[in-house]
Design a protein around this nucleic acid. Sequence first.
DNA 1: TAAACACTGTTATTTTATTAACAATATTTA
DNA 2: TAAATATTGTTAATAAAATAACAGTGTTTA
Lengths: 208, 208
Amino acid sequence: MKKLPGKTVERLSEYRRVLLTLISQGKNYIYSHELASLLHITAVQVRRDLMLIGYSSGIRKGYDIRVLVETIGRVIDSETPLNVAIIGMGNLGRAVSSYFRGKRSKLNLVASFDNDQQKTGKVISGVRCYDVREMENMIKELNISIIILTVPPDYARSTCDDAVRFGVKGVLNFTTVSLNVPPTVYLEEYDMVTSIEKVAYFVKESIR
Amino acid sequence: MKKLPGKTVERLSEYRRVLLTLISQGKNYIYSHELASLLHITAVQVRRDLMLIGYSSGIRKGYDIRVLVETIGRVIDSETPLNVAIIGMGNLGRAVSSYFRGKRSKLNLVASFDNDQQKTGKVISGVRCYDVREMENMIKELNISIIILTVPPDYARSTCDDAVRFGVKGVLNFTTVSLNVPPTVYLEEYDMVTSIEKVAYFVKESIR
DNA sequence: TAAACACTGTTATTTTATTAACAATATTTA
DNA sequence: TAAATATTGTTAATAAAATAACAGTGTTTA
């Protein structure tokens, strides 16, 4: 299948998230307009995304939620599970760990790293925490291909460079520092201050 | 000034973030292509964004960083500061607090809320933590117009509804639950699991 | 069972966002 | 100081994303 636009991948992930909660609530079928309204988008958007992944319900009483979840998984999940590590087990690292751990069968959170001796060697928020100096060994040994970077700003660049050198292929950067990676590595950056400022901007504009 | 596209607002916030660190490093001027490369975008993008906010350097040796920061502030910041509260002081709430507190002069983090008696009444990560039952009083008393929602999923909807009822105008939702707000309220949602899945997708596609 | 309806899948259109092109001009160099 | 260069600001072109339109077809209703 042709590589999907990033926006579509994001929405597919969101579809699955709400679909999984609907399953747990005992729902079996869902119309495109229902799914759309749960995510504040249009039904056309939903149908178009599903068209892109080649999914068709055939019937006119909505999509079979289980089948849809499975189809989305076949498209966006890796066939063989990918191993993930969190670097920096401060508040944010621990938050990410508890949000994420065990949620997706094809993404295993296999390790975390920190330089604080109080943390290393222990299991924190469900993940074993290693000393950052063990990064090279563990990335190779555990075949870690994705890191989530939640270290203090001063350590961000060097830690990322190291991880890339040790073979990591994807980086999710939550630090306030903008990183550089070679073109063979996928980098996603998120800055929560930017999100807050965006909210503030539109609030300001609306109450003007 | 006409309302700016959300994407431009995001980039302006990012420009300012890197410009502030550059100032602290003693840099005074910056070319559009330098700023662009720091954020992995093109120089045209930068110049176009600045055009949108009506900023012109006049000279050909880059933008005066201080002036640019000030101009961006005039556009995206509220004239009178906006008050912000974090609801839910778990790991994520505390992380947001330390990322954000004191960073922006026009956004004051004035309170946090939790239902854990161990936390209420104390100052946590630099912010006073109130009992959620005090939300109505405090939102009104402190004139809180923006909330950052970092509560467990089960509390997300009701907490958001309450806050909106008490007068909040902007919501930044970090929970895994998709929310509904009236059209007068601005809602921004971020799901870190989606970001991780996006990274995983592109990693998987690149190593195929 | 026939007509009305509702929903899907897909193409066409519109809108938004990004990139390219380039004239104007400050700055640098010879 | 004159020519060459580099950078900006802006318009034009392109690309990407979202929306609208609608034909086709299960499904429901009378």
